[in-house]
């Protein structure tokens, strides 16, 4: 349970949001040319990091917009919030 600073609505409780998993997994441009291994990697395999993780969230019970956050998964502390399409922060 934590507070998320929605880039569009401001600070709200986490229960208003829905987690969308690991961010920056790019959909393959040529899906027909992928091997089964590459498909599995895209569809199922996750880093599932303990520590600093980049992830997508949606403000499901608010503005319903998607955005990214950087969160320490070992203690749920949010390090940064940035909009879709923006460059992820480097530190």
């Amino acid at each position: 349970m934590f507070i998320i600073n929605c880039p569009f609505c401001g600070e709200r409780e986490q229960s208003e949001f829905k987690a969308g998993g690991e961010a920056h997994i790019v959909r393959p441009k040529q899906p027909t040319e992928l091997s089964d291994d590459q498909w599995a990697d895209y569809l199922f395999m996750r880093k599932n990091i303990k520590g600093i993780q980049f992830e997508r969230w949606v403000h499901a019970h608010g503005c319903r917009k998607w955005f990214n956050i950087v969160r320490d998964t070992s203690n749920d502390e949010i390090k940064a919030v940035y909009k879709m399409g923006e460059k992820p922060p480097t530190e």
């Binding site: 349970m1 829905k18 969230w57 998964t73 070992s74 749920d76």
Partner: peptide, 14 residues
């Protein structure tokens, strides 16, 4: 379960 990845061994109250 909560729907986000976490290793904190703490879940949400809701």
């Amino acid at each position: 379960t909560d729907d986000y990845v976490s290793y904190s061994q703490k879940g949400s109250h809701d």
